[in-house]
């Protein structure tokens, strides 16, 4: 039983790490700040969740699992806020590359709040 759990944990940890790696690659490769924010905040959320589940399966200790649960909850609650603040600041500072945008309906909004 514990052997099976170890294998699942191993698998989840590797997949989570690969997702984080791909986030890093995307961060370097994507053309402008707004698309980079997608890479910086998202695949990594799923990657982090998988790593946390993998750790929970490996540790199997109530004290550790509750802490991991808190890490998951707070990172999911805060990652979108951070992405939004940086994205918003970048757009207002004119860092969004207009040539890469097919549609930009924020530019048409009368007052950019």
């Amino acid at each position: 039983m514990s052997g099976v759990l170890d294998v699942i944990a191993w698998f989840l940890l590797v997949v989570g790490a690969l997702l984080s790696l791909s986030a890093g690659v995307a961060l370097i490769r994507f053309p402008d700040l707004l698309s980079r924010m997608h890479a910086a905040t998202k695949p990594q959320v799923l990657g982090l969740l998988l790593v946390l589940i993998g750790c929970a399966l490996r540790l199997r200790d109530a004290v550790d699992i509750t802490t991991l649960l808190l890490v998951a909850v707070f990172s999911m609650a805060t990652a979108p806020v951070a992405a939004h603040m940086i994205g918003r600041a970048a757009y207002r500072a004119g860092q969004a590359r207009a040539d890469l945008l097919v549609v930009d309906e924020l530019a048409d909004a009368d007052d950019k709040r």
């Binding site: 707004l34 698309s35 924010m37 997608h38 905040t41 998202k42 695949p43 959320v45 799923l46 999911m76 609650a77 990652a79 979108p80 992405a83 939004h84 994205g87 918003r88 757009y91 097919v102 549609v103 309906e105 924020l106 909004a109 950019k112 709040r113």
Partner: peptide, 29 residues
């Protein structure tokens, strides 16, 4: 907004709270 932001490919750039409008940046359109 949170659920949209957690799914990769969409990012909230700005929110108009009074009108209830979300400005979403979508990747690969």
């Amino acid at each position: 907004a949170e659920a949209l932001s957690l799914v990769p490919g969409s990012l909230i750039v700005d929110v108009d709270r009074k009108k209830g409008v979300l400005y979403v940046h979508v990747l690969e359109v």
